[in-house]
Design a protein around this nucleic acid. Structure first.
Length: 598
DNA sequence: ATAGGGTTAG
């Protein structure tokens, strides 16, 4: 039509631009832009708005903002489109600047502007600005607009201001599914940012409660709800609840959804049910890169290296292009099995065939592998040659290698490096103390102990949880919170006897015994995972795995104990601590004793 | 012509 020389109206041009926008066709869009300039209508408000939106959707923020500034008469939609363009293209700071400028120009924001700016606040964790926007939204008459309240509530949750979020939630006259999903997702995310395992646990439980209330309210959950709540079940290692959610997804017809399917794979994996994870993966009707990567990662974590690598080949055959995270899974599979040659081959394949630049995590896998098989000098060379600063994971796996292969000199050096990375981390101090203790270096032991006392480090919060049927039970080190504590003590005594008869020898572990003193305590019988284990055995008399989640890393002594116990009771024990998933079967652990133990 | 919620990481 344009080539025929017909003169398009602004309306026609707008429709063209929208078509380019939904096709994400920047080339065609630019062509239309050319005609717009030719006809001199780029200053028109609706044309400019459409151009701004088009360039934003095609990822070209510069052009979007340029188109915006050329608009002669910018209305609220123009400003909102430009602000949203900043959000979509990861430039929150510019979004804020535009918002302030808009207010200075005397343009009043509408509900679209407000929700947009609030989501920028989420990204920036800008609670101060966010609460000002909240006040502003009330002032300009959007105080009871549902999307606006949802956004404010989600922002408060993401910034950890739970009381205020809850107040908003409880005070809402109407809710939408987005409200519920924001509450659930918000609590799920709080689990990751929680200061300790205990508050993370509380957030998770709260998310599950909100999910239950949602179901009772009669509203139908959607894929967002299911993927969030499944993530919560994974973090809580709450297999029973996860299975129930699985049943509800089937009832609601969401089983064929690829995101829900992937979330199920991850839930079963993180609950230690690799079989169920694999089953969920096989049953998926379509799989994304993320689904394949999740399953490869799952096999790798469980020490099933061959299956992980086989799946990687299947993925390539299926025509799915792996990304850098997939290769983290592939390399860690090789690392677990000590397959040095394969690891190097995959590392080359990643660089050469897929043009993926190695990142620190890939090097970490290679260092972990060399450390596991005892090639400590080579691993150390790798660390020294790194152009990047070694991270905590690198030092931790190197330490595990040194301890396992009896090189206390290098191990202690690495542990001191780890401490300088995490100078306030209680667990690192305990690790270092345990290492000086077993190396018999008492002077260093006292020195570290003194530093600990001087720094007044908070006492370790050692909690474990076990979920039995519908309830989650908590256990804290040294404390007897449950009715059945006598039974727990007796059972632990019996188990200790049995383990000893099989050759278990207690090694003890360092800990703060009271507010002032740090000592090696010989018995670790009061550690929380042991209490949870005994409680679990007393309350689930049938066979089947015992699943425990723990707030901090497991100590070597408890780890060793669990290996013996898995033989005595002929049951599988799964413990997920803050660093690693441990699956004890028949005296062996899936981490092969390289799970960042204290 | 503009908005609010979700899945992968050793």
């Amino acid at each position: 039509m344009l080539e025929a020389g017909a003169y398009p109206t602004n309306r026609t041009l707008g429709i063209f631009l929208n078509a380019c926008s939904s096709l994400c066709d920047i080339k065609l869009g630019k062509q239309v832009h050319g005609y717009i300039v030719k006809y001199g209508v780029e200053f028109d408000t609706s044309i400019g708005n459409a151009l701004c939106s088009l360039y934003s959707k095609c990822g070209s923020l510069d052009s979007a903002v340029k188109a915006f500034w050329r608009i002669g008469d910018k209305n609220v939609i123009s400003w909102t489109t430009a602000i949203s363009a900043c959000g979509d293209n990861a430039d929150s700071a510019m979004g804020f600047t535009l918002f302030v400028e808009m207010l200075c120009m005397g343009v009043q924001p509408n509900e679209f502007t407000l929700t947009n700016i609030l989501s920028l606040c989420c990204v920036m964790q800008a609670l101060g600005v966010g609460s000002q926007v909240h006040s502003l939204s009330i002032k300009v008459g959007y105080g009871s607009n549902l999307p606006v309240i949802n956004s404010v509530m989600y922002l408060y949750l993401k910034c950890g201001w739970i009381s205020e979020a809850k107040k908003l939630f409880d005070g809402m006259e109407t809710t939408s599914l987005v409200t519920w999903n924001a509450m659930i997702a918000g609590h799920a995310q709080m689990m990751d940012f929680a200061e300790d395992g205990l508050s993370a646990h509380h957030s998770g439980i709260e998310a599950l409660n909100i999910f239950l209330r949602l179901n009772r309210s009669g509203m139908k959950p959607d894929l967002f709800t299911f993927s969030s709540v499944l993530t919560v079940c994974s973090s809580l290692v709450a297999l029973d609840q996860g299975e129930q959610v699985h049943a509800i997804t089937i009832k609601n017809g969401f089983l064929s959804d690829v995101v829900v399917g992937t979330a199920l794979v991850n839930m079963y994996n993180k609950c230690g049910s690799i079989g169920a994870a694999s089953k969920a993966f096989v049953e998926m009707s379509t799989r994304t890169l993320i689904s394949w990567t999740s399953m490869i990662m799952a096999f790798a974590q469980h020490g099933r290296s061959q299956q992980a690598l086989q799946l990687f080949e299947d993925m390539r055959l299926a025509g799915v292009r792996p990304n850098r995270i997939t290769f983290v899974g592939v390399l860690s599979a090789c690392s677990h099995a000590g397959m040095v040659d394969s690891a190097m081959a995959y590392f080359e394949m990643m660089k050469r065939d897929y043009r993926i630049k190695p990142m620190i995590d890939h090097y970490a896998c290679l260092i972990d592998m060399l450390a596991r098989i005892g090639r400590l000098d080579e691993a150390f060379d790798y660390i020294k040659k790194l152009k990047l600063e070694p991270n905590a994971f690198i030092w931790s796996s190197f330490i595990a290698g040194c301890r396992s292969h009896g090189n206390s000199e290098l191990g202690l050096y690495a542990a001191e490096q780890l401490l300088s990375l995490n100078p306030k981390d209680y667990e690192t101090y305990i690790l270092l103390l345990n290492m000086y203790h077993s190396a018999g270096r008492w002077q260093d032991f006292s020195r570290v102990r003194k530093t600990m006392t001087e720094k007044k480090l908070k006492k370790l919060k050692d909690w474990s949880w076990i979920s039995i049927r519908d309830k989650v039970y908590s256990f804290k080190r040294d404390e007897r919170l449950h009715q059945q504590c006598k039974g727990v003590d007796k059972l632990l005594g019996d188990l200790l006897e049995k383990a000893r008869s099989l050759g278990y020898e207690p090694q003890g572990s360092s800990e703060i015994t009271d507010e002032e003193n740090v000592e090696i305590t010989l018995s670790t019988i009061h550690h929380s995972e042991k209490l949870a284990l005994a409680f679990g055995l007393l309350n689930t008399p049938n066979a089947g795995p015992i699943r425990i989640i723990k707030s901090i890393s497991t100590c070597r002594d408890c780890h060793n104990f669990m290996k013996f116990i898995s033989v005595c009771i002929e049951r599988e024990i799964i413990i997920r601590d803050s660093k690693c998933l441990h699956r004890f079967v028949n005296g062996q652990c899936s981490c092969r004793d390289f799970g960042n133990l204290l």
